[in-house]
Design a protein around this nucleic acid. Structure first.
Length: 222
DNA sequence: GCGACAG
DNA sequence: ATCTTGTCGC
């Protein structure tokens, strides 16, 4: 894992797009991590006014039990702009991940991965910059069209290309959206999401716990 | 120009 | 994301 980070400073939409185009070419879409993983991570961000609370959790892949978690409070410096989420959440997420005592073999990020108009959702962005395997897990669709559903999965297509998948979990009528973040294939990503989603739940444990802790941590800093 | 739009 | 009341179901 790369532990020397750089500051983006003030960045224009134009520069952000340029960065996305360059980083998008660096995304690795085949499995390149310990599979099956021993430890699987989850990352999420919550907000308290102008501060972001990043949370990274580590779970035992076999038992889905929490083994460690880290938090990071950061001042928000970038507005929420659809397709540019990474520029807002990179630091809180990265600082939380880098604060962990150990690393996960792969991390689920509460954001889109390749399922993004420029092929670089925040999950890919974090994965490429920190050089860690990541999976994008989102609750809503950002772009693309949901194709033919087969069992509990349907491809999400954009410009005749499969950029992610809609996955129906729990008894929710609405699916969650899974896509490649970095160093993982779409099929493996889908499988890992299913394997870490407890019976009846809509979200995989890594994401659910990270979200839960992020929300609870807010009352601790206000 | 219009509508859509992760967290 | 966050702000919010009640409500349905296990």
């Amino acid at each position: 894992m790369k532990r020397n980070l750089q500051t983006y400073g003030k960045i224009s939409i134009e520069k952000a797009r340029r960065a996305q185009r360059l980083l998008a070419e660096m995304v690795i879409e085949h499995d390149d991590f310990k599979n099956p993983p021993d430890i699987i991570g989850g990352v999420d961000v919550s907000y308290l006014g102008n501060r972001a609370v990043g949370v990274a959790v580590l779970l035992d892949f076999r038992t889905l039990e929490l083994v460690e978690y880290a938090t990071a409070v950061v001042d928000v410096k970038f507005p929420y702009v659809p397709t540019l989420l990474a520029f807002r959440e990179f630091f809180p997420m990265a600082k939380a991940i880098l604060s962990l005592k150990r690393n996960a073999d792969i991390y689920m990020i509460d954001a889109q991965g390749r399922l993004h108009p420029y092929g670089l959702g925040a999950a890919c962005h974090i994965g490429v910059v920190l050089d860690i395997p990541t999976i994008g897990v989102a609750k809503r669709l950002l772009c693309g069209t949901i194709g033919a559903r087969s069992d509990d999965v349907a491809p999400v297509v954009l410009d005749d290309k499969i950029i992610g998948a809609a996955v129906w979990t729990g008894r929710s009528k609405k699916p969650i959206f899974v896509s490649v973040g970095h160093k993982v294939s779409l099929n493996t990503a889908i499988r890992l999401v299913k394997q870490t989603t407890r019976k009846g739940r809509k979200l995989p444990e890594p994401i659910r716990l990270a979200h839960s802790i992020a929300t609870r941590y807010r009352s601790r800093i206000r």
